[in-house]
Design a protein around this nucleic acid. Structure first.
Length: 338
RNA sequence: AGGGGUGUGGCGCAAUUGGCAGCGCAGCGGCCUCCAAAGCCGAAGGUUGCAGGUUCGAUUCCUGUCACCCCUGCCA
């Protein structure tokens, strides 16, 4: 069963909660997804089930899921080299979620800090938001995932997934692979362009702080040029004293083929204006095409939906096998055929 | 579960007896600045939680409903 030289199975998901992913998503995670297609058996998921844990509009959600998938394809995910699907097309997720929910202690779930964060910001809090990490565990365990790329904010949830896998295996016999965190090569997190103390996020207090992949090139240029800096004029990488500028340098080195040293040398004696102008072009040139390709994918919705359906079918081959095992272990009947 | 309170732009709040829904902050545009910040100028932003009712007219009064907060009770 276990092949020694098989690629590690990797799973990662992203919520379709905005009209466009942003530069922080891209440089922090999505670009990594593209790379992992070659070194891993990668499963990528647009997690629309998770998106309704907070208020949502049905039409908007549906469209965003599609736009999200189109963007993922546009930025380099290849359905031939990875398994890309929308979570709601794979019913095994909530089915396993229920089982895992019954293995999760109430206190254990109560300790999830992201729930505390999010629920305090919502007018009303649903049970769905509370059990979110359990569904996330199902997302992961369903695919016998070896590694999960995680940022700091998801560490606790992955820890829960591991605990549940270990507990379930211990109680019912070996069923799930226990997932390990995949530590992404130290890429600097991209900060809000108007407030480098904060991570770039769609919930930024100002739209200028977050650069979206689907922004018009001129909008991108404007956001880069409007980014906060400092009262100095020296282009030097110094996150302590020059957080705004250093953030821009991070973006520059991530997208352009250059280093901090080269940048410092190149802009020695010149102002931030020049630096920003050049960076704006780098950003527009490298990110701009993603929007163009996204529009192409969206232009043929039937084909896009076919791609997603094929992805879901591939996913279900694995997911249904794991679910069947879990069903049997806990004493359920197999789902009836239609 | 009972009693009370609250619900108005993104946020914090106003609106006399029922009479054109306003203010501050944030956000947006412009000037300034090597760029940005600060400062100055400008424009915009609303189904008053939701559903009914009374009225010529409802943010305001009535009924219902939903959400959140406080008190009491219930449960342990």
């Amino acid at each position: 069963m276990t092949t020694t030289d098989r690629k590690p199975r990797v799973l990662s998901g992203i919520q379709p909660t905005s009209d466009s992913f942003h530069l922080g998503n891209y440089l922090g995670a999505l670009r990594q997804w593209v790379a992992l297609q070659d070194t891993a058996d990668a499963f990528y998921c647009v997690v629309d089930l998770h998106a309704i844990t907070v208020d949502h509009d049905p039409k908007v959600l549906h469209e965003r899921s599609r736009v999200s998938a189109a963007q993922l394809l546009a930025l380099g995910l290849d359905p031939e080299r990875c398994t890309l699907f929308v979570q709601s097309q794979v019913p095994e997720h909530p089915m396993l979620g229920w089982i895992l929910g019954c293995e999760t202690g109430f206190g254990e779930a109560s300790r999830m800090t992201q729930f505390k964060d999010k629920s305090s910001k919502q007018e009303r809090t649903t049970v769905g938001l509370f059990t979110y990490p359990v569904l996330q565990a199902a997302d992961i365990l369903l695919y016998q995932t070896d590694q999960v790329p995680v940022g700091e904010d998801q560490r606790q949830h992955l820890e829960l997934s591991r605990d549940l896998a270990i507990r379930f295996n211990g109680t019912y016999g070996r069923t799930f692979t226990v997932p390990d965190p995949y530590i992404v090569k130290e890429t600097a997190t991209i900060k809000d362009l108007t407030d480098p103390a904060k991570k770039m996020s769609k919930t930024s207090s100002t739209p200028k702080g977050c650069l979206y992949l689907l922004d018009e090139p001129n909008q991108m240029r404007k956001k880069i040029k409007g980014a906060v800096t400092d009262s100095d004029a020296e282009v030097r990488f110094d996150p302590e004293n020059k957080p705004g500028l250093s953030n821009l340098m991070n973006i520059y080195t991530a997208l352009g083929n250059t280093t901090f040293e080269k940048l410092e040398a190149e802009y020695a004696g010149r102002g931030y204006g020049d630096f920003k102008g050049d960076l704006a072009e780098v950003v527009a040139d490298s990110i701009g095409p993603i929007a163009t390709r996204t529009k192409e994918f969206l232009a043929d919705k039937a084909e896009l939906d076919r791609i997603l359906e094929r992805g879901a079918e591939k996913a279900r081959i694995v997911a249904s096998r794991t679910l069947a095992k879990a069903y049997k272990k806990v004493g359920f009947f197999a789902p009836a055929a239609l």
